[in-house]
Amino acid sequence: MRGLSFEIPNKSGQYLLNILNAFDFTQYFWKTGGEEAYYIENDELGAPLFPKPHVYSGEAFYNRISAGNYYVLFADLKAFNDPLHVKEITTYEEFLNSQCEFALLLVDCSYVTIYTKNQKVLTALYTKAIESKYENVVYITDENDNRTTFEIF
């Protein structure tokens, strides 16, 4: 099993935090890039959740996704054990051959695709998605993975 796909509600909240709380995501360094996500301020889109492409420590990443409600249109989040090994990952093969441990791609506000090298994390994410009543929760396998790139645009 390569990963997991599912749909979250198309509304604001703390969905990234809810999804990632299935495992200890703060142990990683998180590379952001290409996101279109905003904090909700006065019931409107406000400041960017991730102002620019950046590498966040686990604690700094946690602080961003737990600081309030936000609305995510697109997100490309990759987790690495060591900030010195952070690099662009654009295909599944690059993912396998890199130090990247986890990739979360969110497209069109609702469609989440996750890849992880850790099967225990994958099982925990699956359970969390079911408990959260996300829709169309499906494991991604070699047979059903039709994604050609790890890019959201």
Rank of each mutant, 00 (worst) to 15 (best):
L16K: 03
L16N: 01
I19N: 02
L20K: 05
N21H: 11
A22W: 11
D24Y: 13
Y28K: 05
F29C: 00
K31V: 01
K31C: 03
G33N: 02
G34H: 00
E35I: 00
E41T: 09
D43H: 10
E44N: 14
G46K: 07
P53T: 03
G58T: 07
A60E: 10
F61T: 02
N63Q: 14
R64W: 03
S66M: 09
S66V: 06
S66F: 07
A67S: 15
G68V: 09
L73Q: 04
L73N: 06
F74R: 09
K78T: 05
N81K: 15
P83Q: 13
P83H: 10
E88H: 05
I89E: 06
T90V: 14
Y92V: 13
E94C: 06
E94M: 12
S98F: 09
F102Q: 08
F102K: 08
F102P: 05
L105E: 07
L106G: 00
V107Y: 08
V107R: 09
V107P: 00
S110Y: 02
V112P: 02
T113W: 03
T113M: 08
I114G: 00
T116K: 08
Q119I: 13
T123P: 04
T123I: 14
A124L: 15
L125V: 10
L125S: 11
L125R: 12
Y126E: 12
K128P: 06
A129F: 07
I130Y: 12
E131S: 13
S132D: 08
